[in-house]
Design a protein around this nucleic acid. Structure first.
Lengths: 274, 274
DNA sequence: CATTAAGTTGCACATTATGCAATAATCATT
DNA sequence: AATGATTATTGCATAATGTGCAACTTAATG
């Protein structure tokens, strides 16, 4: 392990340059690599990871070996690509179990589903965008896979739009701008949104003014959704609550489902931490 | 770092005892401590953690300092108790997103499109039938019937036929029977399908036997498509993967595109949740 | 305020993390 | 199927830092 060239005489004599925060240097390096892997949208090779982490492949490989041993990372077969493993999921679920805001929101889902006959979900902002962390539905809900971990698009989902208006702005707009660029490249647009920053900002104004967002069957035929934010004390969305249904009448403006959603989010917002 | 008492002479000469799995010893110890913290039901003191992890408080403290620096752990104030931080939640969310079937399938679209020069899509069963939820194409792909939310017909699209054979049967056949009745009313038929239940059942047998479905230019002039199911453990399609192209030669039987499609769906099926 | 217990940090020494090169495995091409 | 190129993995000598101990700091209690 190399010392920095500017080591003081005292440090040189004693043998160790302590890390700036009193931690362990190899652990810091390893955890930086883990974050790089987590940010990747696909399984990665050891050389990709080493390059991205500015380290030798040999070093990256050894860190990955320890992460595999701990269950945080998995590799499909020897010499295969690496991705996050069950241990990472378990760690996240443990962290989530301690998050009072998510748990309070989740506790409301059953009542919402019972009252509306629809499906309802809680999403929070994750490394890849708005991520479903809890959901409930009635047995008759017809859409097949709606699952824990589903990442919603920012621009054309009700959930995503609420994050666009109320979420952590720098991160949200970084992703939104990428999605806008991609849409322009493929010459896409949506019923109420052109793939431009100006159009997206106008959408944000509409969502902020109304305090919720909705998408109707023009986006996914037969599906309608309404979403509202659970705000913290800075007015930023900590989570988003969404009701989604195939029943076109259920989520009408000024209807009971929207009232329930807004009231629930308001109550949960009042309980949010500083 | 202490050697075990039984170190071999060779290891003593070379200086390092490699960890059993080729990883890094201090990283292994640190990750073991993190798991102990995750398993605790409440915030823990450094001495509790050190005791549970059979290490000195000084060692535990330094590991925790690195975890805090990485965001995986937080401490309410100096000398306060330790608990999992936002970074642990983010790691879990990233793992959750990886674990999601639609995201896994979507990740494959780019490779498929690159390999074939065609367009590729993921569809799920929605309220009005097979619904496109993800798609990719090359920028040069000129024919664009695709959009997020496009509902494919059940009887005369490759995607729909795979759902007919492998999808949630009660819902799928309810819609199929309605489309058959409509076709009889309009006196429609298709090159390989009469608008009868018997003919449709024969089609299902063919699709189930081959494990995939294809439609050629007789259905939509200039377009050919092949589809295969991503099956769950009950043998029911959770999603369907489709390659579509205007190049008639590309999707020939026993060709590389079909092989790629089948292999991809097989791999994704193997990863599907219970 | 004094005392005790727990958290945090300096430093000498003990231990292992690391880079480099060799070996093994996988992928692409013919 | 064979071959060459590329990438993943591992042995080992050297470079680097992780660790235990004790001192210092902080927090809690009487």
């Amino acid at each position: 392990m190399k010392r920095t060239a500017g080591s003081s005489d005292a440090a040189a004599l004693s043998g160790a340059e302590p890390s700036a925060h009193g931690g362990i240097q190899s652990l810091d390096s390893a955890l930086a690599l883990l974050q790089i892997l987590a940010a990747m949208s696909r399984p990665a090779s050891v050389s990709e990871l080493a390059r991205a982490g500015a380290m030798t492949t040999s070093k990256a490989h050894r860190y990955l070996a320890s992460f595999i041993n701990a269950g945080l990372v998995m590799q499909r077969h020897r010499s295969g690509r690496y991705e996050l493993g069950k241990g990472a999921l378990d760690l996240g679920l443990a962290a989530m179990a301690r998050d009072n805001l998510i748990n309070r929101a989740a506790d409301r889902l059953e009542d919402i589903v019972d009252a509306t006959g629809a499906a309802a979900l809680v999403a929070i902002w994750g490394p890849h965008g708005p991520t479903v962390v809890r959901w409930e539905r009635t047995a008759s809900f017809v859409v097949t896979p709606l699952a824990l971990g589903t990442v919603m698009p920012v621009l054309n989902s009700a959930t995503g739009r609420v994050f666009l208006a109320f979420g952590p702005q720098r991160m949200v707009w970084s992703l939104a701008e990428a999605q806008l660029a991609r849409a322009r490249e493929l010459k896409l647009s949506w019923p109420d949104l052109e793939p431009t920053v100006e159009s997206a900002r106008a959408l944000v104004e509409r969502v902020r003014t109304s305090g919720y967002s909705s998408v109707d069957g023009r986006f996914i035929p037969g599906l309608k959704a309404i979403s509202a934010p659970i705000l913290n004390w800075q007015g930023e969305a900590e989570a988003v609550l969404t009701i989604t249904t195939g029943d076109e009448g259920l989520l009408e403006q000024n209807g009971p489902a929207l009232d329930l959603l807004i009231a629930t989010c308001r109550e949960l917002s009042a309980l949010a931490p500083q």
